[in-house]
């Protein structure tokens, strides 16, 4: 039990996840997203799992002259439809096994990436989408995949962006206060989440002490006043803070200045914490 565990809030904030959906491609990141989603799930709440199908990959395998360039060595190997299909099936099977290990039933729906935009439009601000920060694009050195970026920019739902290698043994949940107003709802939701996980709550940002220091429902709070610019300096400072305080999750608002800055999301994606982008 975390010694800094928060007192039970007087009332749980409205807006507990109505729908919870995990986007799967059997990458390491997507498996971490499944684990993260399980911690958000209420008892008995259904968990939707969408397996992302990449038809372009299947189609490319149908050509006789296409080959696969191995990401590590540059070696060329055959790229056949049959082997591609087999590998695709193997990925699905892995995904189903992962679900079955965590849920009583497996309900893995296949969804082509092209259809994803339509499906995502069904999710609202009270719903959560969980996915890995980067799929197979990490081979290109990316910290943030195109799908994650797209959903941050376009989706209405709140997002859980799982880190492939999160911080071990977290002790607190942090909220980044980088909006002009006071994101009370954000803080309340984060507080409820911290309480559920048995973590303390850390508020990061200029307004933290002024706004929430006297809040009776926000106790055992450590507030930091320094300004957190976006960019490398801010990323460095956040990374140091996350390590020092053993932050397990970092919550932030979609309207904040970090996500508004050009490389803010990519820099946040480089941090070893799960990101919760709240609508």
């Amino acid at each position: 039990m975390n010694p800094d565990r928060l007192a039970r809030p007087e009332s749980l904030p409205v807006g507990s996840p109505a729908r919870l959906c995990v986007l799967f491609d059997a990458s390491v990141g997507s498996l971490a997203a499944l684990e993260l989603a399980m911690t958000h799930r209420r008892s008995g709440q259904p968990l939707e799992a969408l397996f992302l199908d990449e038809p372009d990959w299947q189609r490319s395998a149908a050509y006789a002259f296409t080959t696969e360039v191995c990401a590590l060595s540059g070696h060329l190997r055959p790229h056949h439809a049959q082997s591609a299909r087999w590998r695709q099936q193997a990925r699905q099977a892995r995904a189903q096994r992962a679900l079955r290990q965590r849920l009583e039933t497996t309900d893995l729906k296949i969804c082509a990436v092209a259809e994803l935009e339509q499906r995502m439009a069904e999710f609202g601000p009270e719903d959560w989408l969980a996915l890995g920060r980067v799929g197979f694009a990490d081979q290109q050195g990316r910290r943030l995949g195109s799908l994650a970026r797209q959903l941050v920019e376009q989706s209405q739902a709140s997002l859980l962006l799982a880190a492939a290698r999160p911080q071990p043994g977290p002790r607190c949940l942090a909220v980044l206060l980088d909006t002009p107003d006071h994101p009370t709802a954000l803080v309340q939701r984060a507080r409820a989440r911290a309480f559920a996980l048995g973590l303390s709550l850390l508020l990061i940002g200029e307004t933290a002490l002024d706004t929430f220091g006297s809040d009776n429902q926000v106790d055992r709070v450590a507030c930091y006043r320094p300004s957190y610019p976006t960019g490398l300096a801010g990323q460095t400072e956040l990374a140091r803070l996350i390590r020092a305080r053993r932050v397990g999750e970092l919550w932030l608002s979609r309207r904040g200045r970090w996500l508004a800055s050009p490389d803010g999301l990519a820099r946040l994606a480089a941090l070893p914490v799960a990101l919760s982008v709240v609508a």
């Binding site: 990959w57 189609r59 490319s60 395998a61 050509y63 080959t67 696969e68 360039v69 197979f136 081979q139």
Partner: peptide
């Protein structure tokens, strides 16, 4: 020509 990421690397296709 599309550059596609695969689980094992990359491939190219029209």
């Amino acid at each position: 020509i599309a550059l596609i990421s695969t689980p094992g690397g990359f491939t190219l296709a029209p």
